[in-house]
Design a protein around this nucleic acid. Structure first.
Lengths: 191, 191
DNA sequence: AAAACTGGCTAATTCAAATTAGCCAAATTA
DNA sequence: TAATTTGGCTAATTTGAATTAGCCAGTTTT
């Protein structure tokens, strides 16, 4: 990884832990192994580092969206899919989704940074909602609540683990229990 | 409200919008209608203002806990209560809970401030989890998931409205739909 | 291989924001 | 009512962090 990229990487780590305003450019430089003034050879100023992170993540998530094409755009079909899925399959999907977002380093750091900065900047609030509300949610009618019932607890567990990683084992147990219950409740519908 | 209290009030407003580090003592003073140095007649330094807010909220929530004694400590009984409750009653409870936390000025500002600052200070992360995870959640077994299913979507809708108040009407519709569905799913159980 | 560029450094510089010093008038208390 | 406390002010002072200046070695381009 070249210096310019390492700066983004270390900056994202620090921003996600302490928030933009609490991170000094000297700290970023230290982690990268250079002196603060050298950062300015790569970025115009501190803000430009932040902006570059946002840009990069927009690019990454665009790709991710394709890869994670679990939910098509046909809500009715998706509904049927949910109902026909075996419990194990559903558990697998939930777990995969959960663990991916929780542990994928880029996702985790970026999510925390957005959580911290979301109220300061409407654009960031928009990105946050897009990533964690709109994208995962299906759009239509009946299915909407079912998806809320599937997704909200997962989101909720995620935010808990963000705050307290030691709760992860508990969160995983709870996640499984949630999904089993979800399956029991929604699995045997006729219509 | 005396000056000392007004300082806390305005500081909380600002902290909840921009985060501790982005608020200048001069801003707080402006809002209160005094000059920055005068703040120091009331608080030792900026940090002491923040700490006083935390202390005050601890006191408030202790009281609130009594008032909101919806959930007793007997999970089995609570479970029965949920199942016997009419849909309208359940809707009322959910709505009341949701709107109270969303609109009560102190709750709203404090929640946003904690959201911003939670990762910087483990103590704050603990408070956040206590207030928004442990306190509302029942502790036992079977009921745990049921409560998660009731609560997580509400929490989720709350965070959405925090970020984007314009979504409140949608959130309320979704909230109702969620609770109706919750009631349908859990309402007719035998055991 | 000379010119230009790249990316690092140290040593200023700038600037903004927190805090302190010291004054003063109104209110409170002895 | 005189002394003291309270809470405000203006004018410094301090501090700390972002940024700029200017130097230099190694690398790339012409």
């Amino acid at each position: 990884m070249d210096t310019k990229q390492r700066i983004l990487d270390e900056a994202l780590t620090l921003f996600s832990e302490k928030g933009y305003a609490n991170v000094y450019v000297g700290e970023i430089a230290d982690r990268v192994g250079i002196k603060a003034p050298s950062l300015y050879k790569h970025y115009k100023n501190k803000r430009a580092i932040f902006d570059a992170i946002i840009d990069e993540m927009n690019a990454r998530f665009a790709e991710q969206a394709k890869a994670m094409a679990v939910n098509g755009s046909d809500a009715a079909a998706d509904s049927a899919i949910y109902q026909q899925m075996s419990e194990d399959h559903l558990l697998g999907i939930g777990r995969q989704f959960f663990l991916y977002f929780l542990h994928d380093d880029y996702n985790r750091r970026f999510r925390k940074m957005l959580t911290i900065e979301q109220f300061a900047d409407p654009e960031l609030a928009g990105i946050y909602t897009k990533l964690y509300v709109d994208d995962p949610m299906l759009k239509t009618d009946n299915v909407e609540i079912m998806t809320l019932h599937f997704y909200a607890p997962i989101y909720y567990l995620l935010t808990i683990c963000d705050r307290d990683p030691a709760r992860e084992p508990w969160a995983l147990e709870t996640l499984d229990a949630h999904i089993k219950q979800f399956n029991r409740l929604y699995g045997r519908k006729k219509k």
